[in-house]
């Protein structure tokens, strides 16, 4: 209880301190809506799953003369989204909604010396709603550099599909993990004007966090697995300022 009170008191003092400069600097804030597009790599950390399968396939090939393996490529993934921002004084409040999914599923296969082929296909997507509080370094009107952090609501999904899992000593033809959970992020960004009402932005978001272990909703409830969303995204965007 005491600890909670201390946290509230500290947060209140910090917020009061942050709002203090409001009386001395700029006037009322600005509101904008934007569209973002960018890139990330191996959303939901599927590279660690891919490494496990690639390792297992290569070891199978090594220990079974005549076996063949085609490793699974780790995908780049486009990220698209929208955001609403309110800039007040030195402060930025941003609420985003981003969706990321590799353009193509990651595929690989391992074939036994007898010709039995196990094709593996891994697909994934991630929805995220990051809420950011940051501070901005204003240069001119709508020309800023900013840094911030906050919480993110993630919806993450991973599906692993195999033809003949027994080749790798596995049992499930399909493993599916899906979860909604809260995590965190950090953000660095910059904004410059394009026209009087439009600006362009570049934002670097570092995501942190993982789900609790999730039930497998594929063939069987096991193995359970947590989804790790740690990773970095670079987003470019166009924002439209709304007069309020």
């Amino acid at each position: 209880m005491k600890k909670t009170l201390k946290i509230y008191a500290f947060t209140a003092a910090l917020l009061a301190g942050m709002l203090l400069p409001a009386s001395t600097a700029f006037a009322i804030g600005e509101f904008s809506l934007g569209f973002n597009a960018g890139i990330t790599y191996a959303p939901n950390n599927i590279d660690s799953i891919i490494t496990q399968y690639n390792g297992a396939m290569e070891i199978y090939k090594q220990t079974n003369a005549g076996a063949k393996a085609t490793q699974i490529d780790v995908p780049y993934a486009p990220v698209v989204g929208v955001n609403a921002r309110y800039q007040f004084n030195f402060f930025l409040f941003r609420l985003g909604c981003h969706y990321s999914r590799p353009l193509f599923s990651s595929k690989g296969s391992v074939t036994t010396p007898g010709g039995v082929k196990n094709s593996i296909k891994i697909s994934t997507y991630q929805n995220s709603i990051p809420a950011t509080i940051g501070i901005i370094m204003p240069l001119r009107k709508r020309t800023y550099f900013y840094i911030g952090g906050g919480g993110t609501l993630h919806q993450a999904y991973i599906k692993i599909k195999q033809d003949n899992p027994a080749v790798l000593g596995l049992t499930n033809n399909e493993d599916v993990y899906s979860g909604v959970f809260v995590a965190y992020h950090l953000m660095l960004g910059a904004e410059v004007p394009l026209t009087r009402k439009y600006t362009i932005t570049a934002e670097w978001i570092h995501q942190m966090g993982r789900s609790l272990p999730l039930d497998n909703s594929g063939d069987t409830a096991t193995p359970r697995k947590a989804i790790n969303v740690q990773g970095d995204i670079l987003l470019f965007g166009v924002n439209y300022y709304i007069h309020i």
Binding site: A42, D47, M57, E58, Q62, W204, D232
Partner: peptide
């Protein structure tokens, strides 16, 4: 700068 990526499994 941040790099993210690795080679395939190498022998």
């Amino acid at each position: 700068s941040y790099y993210r990526g690795s080679t395939e499994i190498l022998k």
